[in-house]
Write a protein that binds this DNA or RNA. Structure first.
Lengths: 134, 134
DNA sequence: CTGACTGCAAACGTTTTGCACGGTA
DNA sequence: TACCGTGCAAAACGTTTGCAGTCAG
């Protein structure tokens, strides 16, 4: 179990028990929806409010402690901010996996086609995971 | 101006004036948010209801006449279904451009890293468009 | 002519806000 | 101790639903 106290403070967030638990849940789950997070949090703090979840998610987004992943045809999930990466989503079990792709070639291709100065890419693949293939 | 009467019917949608107008707006704008669509539609049908917009957007999505594009840090937009393509979004003026990328290489890379059977990719780039560079 | 579509109003679910209390630094 | 965070309740917001009248096929 990581200790997120200092990391939260570095993001201008006080280290309350609720926030430490959110960080821990995100670390363990990798990706989780807001409702999923609430369900898990209720088990730890039986009187936690949905408002607290929303307030913290929004503050953590603003302070770049977490980020939202918008998945086609599904609910958004949240994850801790880390090195750039792409996502693979299983259309059967909805499992989400991080992958570290070399995006430089496709980014250059996109830049020359569009004539935009490109800064970042959001890449999400959709398919069937190894477990669901069986 | 395209005539979408038959195309709508091919998608199991009756060709009402409202739907023809939605198709026309999407064709002309390329990409538009729900509120944006409503604003444009009110100019053509001053008594149109937001419920009608929602019902038609949902039916058109279900019947694959249009599709949703979920953009990071922004509202979703809708576009007519056409050949697969990727998107480039300007972070200054929010302009959205379609680009036709060769995604086969990166898809193969993602498949071998993840061991998923990948079906489709959603790729959105973020940057500054030529106009906003100036 | 019949079933589907529209517009209105009400209902619904999700997200935000205001406030009193409690906890972090 | 001072300020920020929490939890509750209410409000606001976006979206959906039910229904009566209308229209496309």
């Amino acid at each position: 179990m990581n200790n997120y106290t200092n990391i939260l403070r570095q993001h201008n967030l006080k280290a309350t028990p609720q926030r430490l638990a959110i960080a821990d849940v995100l670390y363990k789950h990798g990706h989780i929806s807001l409702e999923g997070l609430y369900e898990v949090m209720v088990k730890k703090f039986n009187s936690i409010s949905l408002a607290t979840i929303y307030k913290n998610i929004n503050l953590m987004l603003e302070n770049s402690f977490i980020q939202e992943v918008k998945i086609p045809h599904a609910k958004s999930v949240y994850e801790l901010v880390k090195e750039d990466h792409s996502h693979v989503v299983c259309s059967k079990c909805n499992d989400i996996m991080d992958i570290d792709l070399d995006t430089s070639k496709i980014l250059n291709e996109a830049a020359s086609l569009s004539h935009y100065n490109l800064i970042e890419s959001a890449i999400i693949f959709n398919g069937v995971c190894p477990k669901c293939k069986a």
